[in-house]
């Protein structure tokens, strides 16, 4: 299939799921009426529901999914390892820790950008630790083991901070930070995360040619004019910014970056560069679909997104480990 057709079909899927996400909700609103209210801004309470409750939820699902899918594809391309994923290597968990610290210390209330920046800082520490331990060639075992250790530490510290909070609700929210949810998010959250996610996506997509060149090996890539230091720096900062901001507003949503590139890799001819934009669109579609699913399965219960993602992602992860083992 030609790239243009692929982009159109994936983009169409995202558009369709975005519209479905806008149209489902506990209040039974007519499709025509609600879309008209969203577009024209006339219709009183319906406008408020569409613009302030449903639109931010759909936007966040698309943004968060896109940056997680893209980050997974970029990490896998750079490390040439299909198991690399922000959630599995502990980046999402560390971003959640950063966000929780910003919220509980009052930093997030004092300065607007403190929340996404703390998520970024947490994610950055995790990316650096994992890449340092795994090395530039990213041995699968070291990568996953380092990820387990970083995840466990970040999870424990998140639980500690929330348990020490003077707020009686905080401790019960460990599950939000580890499994993620988009319930009752608002345009405030969209505005906080969007600049970071936007910059991260531009930076990651700009690495398409470098990642394609890297499939020939590092020496060949350098001979083709790729600066490995710059690629690495760009990836580290962009993944930290994107995953950090996404996690700060939506919690840690795992497996998106693992599932999406895996499903789309063959479809785009196994070229890491083309896999980047395909994974961004695929990630947006997957998280939109998962967020629709949680609302259909348990409308009033705030079922966490991570539950759906792990149900899809964990069996695939086992399958990938099995295949990696068979190849070795």
């Amino acid at each position: 299939m030609r790239p243009g057709v692929q982009a159109l079909s994936l983009g169409g899927l995202v558009g369709l799921l975005f519209a479905v996400s806008l149209l489902i909700g506990p209040a039974q609103l007519g499709a025509g009426e609600s879309l008209r209210a969203l577009w024209s801004g006339e219709g009183g309470a319906t406008v408020l529901v569409m613009r302030e409750i449903r639109l931010p939820r759909a936007l966040l699902a698309a943004m968060v999914g896109a940056v997680l899918g893209l980050s997974g594809a970029a990490l896998q391309g750079y490390l040439r390892n299909p198991l690399a994923e922000p959630g599995l290597i502990g980046v999402s968990g560390a971003a959640a820790l950063g966000a929780v610290i910003a919220l509980q210390t009052g930093l997030a209330g004092a300065a607007t950008l403190a929340l996404p920046l703390s998520g970024l800082a947490g994610a950055l520490v995790a990316v650096l630790i994992v890449l340092l331990l795994a090395g530039p060639r990213g041995g699968a075992l070291t990568l996953i083991l380092a990820g387990i250790a970083v995840s466990a530490l970040a999870g424990a510290l998140t639980a500690l901070v929330l348990n020490l909070s003077p707020n009686p609700f905080a401790a019960s929210e460990i599950v939000f930070w580890t499994l993620g949810s988009l319930a009752d998010r608002s345009m405030v959250h969209v505005a906080l995360a969007a600049p970071f996610i936007g910059l991260a996506m531009v930076a990651l997509l700009s690495q398409a040619r470098a990642l394609d060149a890297l499939t020939l090996g590092e020496d060949a890539a350098q001979a083709m004019g790729v600066s490995l230091t710059r690629v690495r720096l760009t990836l580290v900062l962009a993944i930290a910014a994107g995953v950090g901001a996404a996690t700060a507003v939506a919690g840690a949503i795992g497996f998106v970056g693992l599932v999406v590139p895996h499903l789309l890799r063959r479809w785009v001819g196994a070229r890491p560069g083309r896999l980047l934009w395909a994974s961004a669109l695929g990630g947006a579609a997957l998280v939109l679909a998962a967020d629709i699913a949680v609302r259909l399965i348990a409308p009033d219960r705030d079922l966490k997104l991570g539950v759906i993602m792990a149900l899809i992602g964990a069996p695939l992860f086992l399958h990938l480990i099995w295949r990696t083992r068979a190849e070795a």
């Binding site: 408020l48 529901v49 302030e52 409750i53 919220l103 509980q104 009052g106 997030a108 209330g109 909070s165 003077p166 707020n167 009686p168 609700f169 905080a170 019960s172 929210e173 939000f176 009752d184 608002s186 345009m187 405030v188």
Partner: peptide, 16 residues
């Protein structure tokens, strides 16, 4: 709302 922060209480400040 209590001191500290919680997502549970965050909905009380939702723009809508």
């Amino acid at each position: 709302t209590y001191a500290g922060a919680s997502r549970s209480e965050e909905v009380l400040g939702h723009p809508a």
